[in-house]
Design a protein around this nucleic acid. Structure first.
Lengths: 211, 211
DNA sequence: CAGGTTTTGTACTGACCCATCCAATACTTG
DNA sequence: CAAGTATTGGATGGGTCAGTACAAAACCTG
């Protein structure tokens, strides 16, 4: 008996899938992101992905597992460009933080249905809705928090060296402050803040980083 | 035929309630606060309040209506002491903001089951989980946001007059910044930040307000 | 204590929940 | 083209959801 290989080519295949697993995962991620875990039913996931129940359960074993993968993917997608910004040796420390904030503001508009309210950030949404009672989700976001704080520290240390970031506070505290500011911007966006308001928040936060 | 008066004494009564409506509302508020709207079932509400289904539906007509009242009550309970702090003429503008932050930090520990993670802030939780698809909830938190921004502006204007708050930025922007910082602290707390981390975030934010 | 009225517990409703089962389908390999 | 295998759609299952119906209980008023 041959193993399943869950469509991992290289074994004798039978009927191939008619959908792209990554695209389906993206669609599911969007659904969870926009509506939250509890409010997204498996039926919703079928409609969002265009798949039937069998295909979903055959591919992603359970709603919870699908969410875990969706959250993992979200974190991957979002982390990479942020890392690029924060580790960009071509910019000063302060410029990196500024660029990060700009990206956060833009992201609130990139992933939004027209004239709907912002859907915020899946990580923040997960912390608020789920982290207390879902240890797996909590572990994922905690891990993500750790890496983001690390990246922030890298940029902040660069800023302290090049003189664009205050050296009066340790980078750990500053990193947590920036992270909290981003969370606050995300919540503000979901509460209806417009682009100007978000930019103003970011701009004000930068004052605290000045030397 | 006499009207119901929903146990509003003053009419001929029949069987009186064996529970206190306010206490029940408090218990329901706690349940929603800790677990969110979707994840709190009517059964959970029965257990949290100690009431039977009949009593709950007789008193609060529906889960959604009970949530609306719980959120309203939460906002009432939290607003009053914050207003007192922000309008306290005995303190400088900066001191008022400092005191507000201190209160936020403390509140993350007052309402927490022992060694459990923080349950955050019902307003923030509602914005994130519900505001996009529940217009009533959105209206309540938006209204609350308006009054809080107003109170913050009062303190900030006082601070600009007494010289403890920078006059380089208008109070509207500063108020939004502080509000976002509070939201960020709330999310950070739910993500596992301890007291020291929260105090550090608040302390760093204050730097941006200095003249 | 009797009449009237509200509360309360229990059983119940119909809808939806997540997940599984199974037969029909469609493809690859030999 | 035949054999074998994975995917797919649709039906199905047990459980929980919010909310209701109803009768028994509990109390006030007169």
């Amino acid at each position: 008996m041959h193993h399943a290989f869950q469509n991992g080519y290289g074994t004798d295949m039978a009927r191939p899938r008619t959908f792209d697993e990554d695209r389906a995962l993206d669609a599911a991620m969007r659904a969870f992101w926009a509506n939250g875990y509890e409010a997204t039913s498996t039926q919703d996931l079928c409609e969002a992905t265009g798949l039937g129940r069998s295909s979903i359960y055959n591919t992603f074993t359970s709603k919870h597992d699908l969410f875990r993968r969706a959250l993992t993917r979200y974190i991957e997608i979002m982390s990479a460009p942020q890392a690029e910004i924060l580790e960009d040796a071509g910019r000063s420390g302060m410029e990196r933080i500024q660029a990060l904030f700009a990206r956060i503001v833009n992201s609130e508009y990139e992933y939004r249905e027209d004239d709907e309210a912002s859907i915020g950030c899946l990580t923040v949404n997960t912390v608020v809705e789920l982290a207390r009672r879902d240890p797996e989700a909590a572990a994922l976001v905690e891990r993500d928090l750790g890496t983001r704080l690390g990246l922030l520290r890298i940029a902040l240390e660069a800023g302290q060296r090049d003189g664009t970031i205050t050296a009066e506070r340790d980078t750990d505290a500053l990193a947590r402050f920036i992270n909290a500011t981003i969370g606050g911007m995300r919540v503000s966006a979901q509460a209806g803040a417009g682009r100007a308001a978000l930019e103003s928040i970011a701009d004000t936060a930068l004052v605290a980083l000045r030397p």
